[in-house]
């Protein structure tokens, strides 16, 4: 069911006056979590920008009850909380709001364990493609060729295909979303809330500070990432894989917006734009992602027919 914006209640979803940078995608994303899931939500936040946005006691800058926890145990803590709420008979959704470093690098064993146990949590990975909070260091999810403070001439390894890795755990629900298309993200969150078991949502979040672009372009760059094919929106639900409508029209590379349109707005890709060889490598990385997505779409389109 498509979402009508005018139907959403007039209320404050976020908490104005927090410590986030202007144009921050995380505060945008947290508002959409509130719009989608309402008030019966508890967040588990490992170290990251979201820990800083809360500010100092006695006020909190995020409009949710939050458990702040160390990097390596966000998913485990959420599993325990989910079981505790179940024992108490309370209908509370436990959401992990972790950055890309806390998901793909440091917190990965906890994520993998929670996925294997199929604990009833929603895991949202806010993928801003580097360790932004500590000063823009490279992470496993930084794309090829991107500048960070630890990769001065551009990263030499491709991005870890994390949504596909979680999908391989055979969990009930895996989806990718972006802050550029909030309606899509809200619908996916609402669908995830109805499913029992481990739900994983990969949220693409362009960071103005770390990606070196103007704060006003956060939404536009997130949309361009989808339109150029650099980020693929899909949904995997009970053995069925499908591309989301926003990404489905870019299956054909000829219909995509040229990749340079996405790269030239960001300061971190300037070395890639100057070097045609690096640009080809980045293109190859994106093509590889699309090859995986299209293979999965072909192979997992209709599990009913195989039975």
């Amino acid at each position: 069911m498509p979402l009508r914006l005018a139907d959403l209640p007039r209320r404050r979803y976020g908490s104005p006056g927090n410590a986030a940078c202007p144009g921050c995608p995380e505060t945008m994303g947290l508002r959409y979590v509130k719009m989608a899931l309402g008030d019966n939500v508890v967040l588990v936040i490992p170290a990251g920008c979201s820990s800083v946005i809360q500010g100092i006691r006695p006020k909190s800058g995020i409009n949710f009850p939050i458990l702040n926890i160390v990097f390596a145990s966000a998913a485990s803590a959420a599993s325990g909380m989910s079981s505790a709420f179940e024992m108490l008979g309370q209908d509370v959704k436990v959401v992990v709001w972790a950055g890309d470093g806390g998901t793909a690098d440091i917190g990965f064993q906890a994520l993998s364990g929670a996925a294997e146990r199929n604990d009833d949590i929603i895991y949202i990975c806010v993928d801003n493609e580097a360790y932004m909070n500590t000063g823009i260091q490279r992470s496993g999810l930084t794309p090829y060729g991107a500048w960070t403070t630890t990769t001065w001439t551009g990263k030499t390894e491709p991005k870890k295909p994390l949504p596909f890795i979680v999908l391989a755990h055979n969990v009930p629900y895996v989806a990718t979303a972006t802050v550029g298309y909030p309606q899509d993200f809200i619908e996916k969150l609402r669908k995830a809330a109805t499913i029992r078991g481990f739900k994983y949502i990969h949220l693409h979040a362009p960071c103005p500070v770390g990606w070196r672009f103007d704060p006003s372009l956060t939404a536009k760059i997130a949309q361009l990432a989808v339109q150029t094919g650099a980020f693929i929106l899909f949904e995997y639900e009970n053995g069925r894989f499908r591309l989301s409508p926003y990404s489905g029209m870019y299956r054909d590379p000829k219909r995509r917006v040229p990749l340079e349109e996405y790269l030239k707005l960001q300061g971190r890709f300037q070395t890639v734009l100057k070097d045609p060889q690096k640009l080809e490598m980045l293109r190859a990385e994106i093509d590889e992602m699309w090859r995986w997505a299209l293979l999965l779409e072909k192979g997992m389109a209709s599990p009913e027919l195989k039975k």
Binding site: S15, G17, A19, G55, P58, K59, S60, G61, I62, F64
Partner: peptide, 10 residues
């Protein structure tokens, strides 16, 4: 030490 959501935390 528990903090509560409020505007103007910063």
């Amino acid at each position: 030490p528990i903090s509560y959501p409020a505007p103007a935390s910063s």
